[in-house]
Amino acid sequence: MSVTDDEILPAVIAALEEATQHKVPVTPATVLRQDLNLDSLAEMDLIMALEDRFDVSISINHLPEIDTVAELAAMIAKMKKG
């Protein structure tokens, strides 16, 4: 599926809300591990789903560098540009 940069952030937020069953409000400033209470396995599964959503590869070794939803969206945008 083709996605523009502007669409990435809302799509990441929607995917996170779905993954957390809409229990927590998700904003660009939401901190993944702390605010969404994701353990490492849940976080890796979420990355796998986002890889499929945006047709990119996101190395799990980059996860420690990502704190917020905005940073995650920025990383996906960067990956999409290759």
């Binding site: 990355i47 590869s57 190395s59 799990i60 070794n61």
Partner: peptide
């Protein structure tokens, strides 16, 4: 082993 490496790491189902 993946974590200790400097490689890119991808998981599959």
């Amino acid at each position: 082993g993946c974590k200790l490496s400097s490689a890119q790491v991808t998981r599959f189902k």
